[in-house]
């Protein structure tokens, strides 16, 4: 195992060293990332400054939701967020360089540009998570503890798959990076609000097609003991691993097809 991972460790270590080499600009970037996290939080707070309940969630519930989605998305963004700028890699020939190395291309792409600065956003969301957990009254059981711990993790895994989907699509739509944004950043945006405020088609879209609801909303319902709206009952909150497996299958197939398209092996 260690043998297999050694190249990636070396790649990641070299990336981290280069980011930390320019300390001042790294700190500024980190502050910028905190700023983005605060902006997203401000949006929720401004909305709740005029109302008390959105969907079935009060401010405390909404903050819990925000925190799960925020941690998941920012971790995914840190690890694989750069893959949706695939056209840049295509133009600069970096992808060809990857193809000339004895490692899988996707693994090289993922390890090529880990962005530590995005942890600034994770930090904001983590602070909100601590506050939100203390604000809500949750009837803790061991199962719920496991759920609360695993939710940010599976949230990150699901968002990471969305980024890989976005990358795969761009083998065909080189100019259409923003199409992909609609599902990655759009998915994250939709995930930070109770899915129940959406119309049924959108709720189905963001649950079963782009599984954003699994990253935060559905587990939050389970933790807070809500029933959940029609078609997307709270019990689905336990199924984030299934959603993650599903979307990763789609992502990897899409990536494989995209790479085959690029190398002309047919698609």
């Amino acid at each position: 195992m260690g043998e297999v991972l050694a190249p990636y460790r070396a790649l990641l270590a070299s990336r981290l060293r280069s980011q930390l080499a320019y300390r001042r600009s790294f700190v500024l970037d980190l502050i910028g990332a905190v700023g983005i996290g605060v902006l997203e939080l401000a949006e929720v707070l401004v909305i709740f400054s005029s109302i008390t309940v959105l969907g079935e969630l009060d401010l405390a519930g909404a903050l819990l939701l925000f925190a799960f989605a925020g941690i998941g998305f920012s971790l995914a963004d840190m690890a694989v967020g750069h893959v949706d700028s695939l056209p840049r890699y295509l133009r600069s020939g970096t992808l060809d360089a990857f193809l000339l190395r004895p490692l899988p291309v996707l693994a090289q792409l993922i390890t090529s540009d880990l962005q530590l600065r995005r942890l600034g956003r994770t930090a904001v969301a983590a602070v909100v998570l601590v506050i939100a957990l203390s604000m809500n009254t949750i009837a803790w059981t061991p199962a719920l503890v496991v759920l609360a711990v695993l939710t940010p993790l599976f949230s990150a895994i699901i968002f990471a798959a969305l980024f890989v989907c976005a990358a795969g699509v761009q083998f065909w739509l080189v100019e259409g990076g923003e199409f992909a944004n609609a599902f990655t950043y759009g998915g994250s945006y939709a995930a930070s609000y109770p899915t129940s405020i959406f119309s049924l088609p959108m709720r189905v879209l963001f649950t079963f097609v782009v599984p954003a609801a699994f990253t935060a909303y559905l587990p939050t319902l389970v933790l807070l003991g809500h029933a959940g709206p029609a078609w997307t009952p709270a019990v689905l909150g336990w199924f984030a691993p299934v959603a993650a497996a599903g979307i990763w299958t789609v992502a990897l197939l899409g990536w494989r097809a995209g790479l085959r398209h690029y190398t002309g092996a047919g698609s």
Partner: peptide, 28 residues
């Protein structure tokens, strides 16, 4: 080994020595 004169396989923000360490790991 392949060299494209107009494209780089090195890490542009790292010293050569680092690039070689990474490549050595890649090629085991």
């Amino acid at each position: 080994g392949v060299v494209f004169g107009q494209r780089s396989q090195l890490w542009w923000d790292l010293p050569l020595a680092e690039s070689y360490r990474a490549l050595a790991a890649i090629h085991r």
